[in-house]
Amino acid sequence: MREPEDNDRHGDRRRVLVVDDAATVRAYSRKVLEADGFAVDEAVNGIDGLEHALANPPDLLIVDINMQKMDGYAMLRRLRQEPALRDVPAVMISTESKDSDRENALLAGANWYFVKPVRPDDLTAAARLLTGRGAGQAGGQRS
């Protein structure tokens, strides 16, 4: 049985905004996160992501780096200057595994950095932690 969680008190699900130009990656993140009880929004680039975030502030951002129009770095930098969004935790995801990439992500305003591909368990665990959800079975998945 699920223990009632503190943060489920309001009844609505935690909202995650996935910003990535690869439809497959978006679909993957959506599938994994929705299976774990998150509500998922998608955006295809930085500008789209900012617009989505402003219109419907998420509880967590998962952002790719290399995107057309506005990349992930630029998006997070802008986001951290938006009063309504500046403290929304953000995870950056990229195929690059160099330390400098990680450093740049954190400089731009990310709270965590994953190298693609991200294991489903890692993705949900990070999402749960950063949205303050579900200590009880964090990391596990409901099937």
Partner: peptide, 15 residues
């Protein structure tokens, strides 16, 4: 960045 860190840490602790 600091605002985001505080919120992230708060959420991690809560979780």
């Amino acid at each position: 960045r600091q605002g985001a860190v505080v919120r992230a840490v708060r959420n991690i602790l809560t979780a």
